[in-house]
Amino acid sequence: MLEARGVRKSFPRAGARGKAGPAERALDGVSAVFPTGELSVLLGPSGSGKSTLLRLFNRLLEPDEGVLLVDGADARGLDPVTLRRNTGYAIQGVGLFPHMSVAENIAVVPRLLGWDRDRIGRRVRELLEAVRLPASFASRRPRELSGGEAQRVGVARALAADPPVLLMDEPFGALDALTREALQVEFARIQGRLRKTVVFVTHDLAEAVLLADRLFILREGRLLRSGSPRELLAAAGDDFVADFLGARFGIEMLGRESAAAAAEYAGSGPAGGLIASAADLGGAAPLGPEASLRDALARMIAEGRTALPVEGPRGRGLLRIEAIALAGRAAAGAGGNDARR
């Protein structure tokens, strides 16, 4: 578990004629708890202090005031080098070392930890597989990689020594939309398996909603609101938060909801037997069991339909557009049909 208590941090700002200007306040009394095994997203506009907060946890920065706790221990009492070797760190610029091969880049932390050759070799192969890069990439140089490939290597490097904590600073920020989405989905898959304590910085709402177990909304160095995406959808609690999350928030939430779970099935819904025949729906291709409500909505818009057949766990069902509109809201209180997690 990571925790910040009343953390303040200012940076000196360059003033006129080289004199130090008034300090710029990056964090203004932030307290937050990032639970073990959960993916916490720090979300906010640029300059809100997200990255600053993140970098306090591996002591790349030191707070002016306040305490940072790593599993209950005061970070100031931990050796920064040891702390960082036990904390994965992935950044937007990726920062792969250009003179090292992909394998050497991934192996940096294990090497620093003094792992033996065989163990490192095995680990590198494992990680390349985990981030879905072919084993032949081991001997490549960073300059031979595309942006998405480099970012995969960056994630693999952060995971290399199997650290319990992962700090990620807009790791997918510099990628094109398609690659970014592919990597987000893949990272969600990896995290679903590894259950690391992740703190993830982003200003991209869609990314935040897709990945977050818990959202932390920051603005001008203050933590405005935190909670699960559903809690925030149900009650933003603040005008800025409501504005920042915006009307799109509900649509982004649909990306987490399973279409199969929102569909009606023969014999279960009030419409009963009608569903079975309607589910054929003029030969429309059924949505797969993995499809989200956002996928379903996109299909409906593209095909001009108001209902689609769904292949669910209990056979063929019918998904109506009304169900989509209700799903996000209904789930907010109940916390029910989130089949993706």
């Binding site: 591996n58 790349l60 080098v81 040891t82 702390l83 960082r84 070797r85 036990n86 904390t87 760190y89 950044i91 610029g93 990726v94 920062g95 792969l96 070392f97 250009p98 940096v108 932390v109 620093l112 490097r157 700090l167």
Partner: peptide
Amino acid sequence: PPELVEAALGCGM
């Protein structure tokens, strides 16, 4: 490059 220094320190060098 600063991002290399950042990455290296972040790795615990």
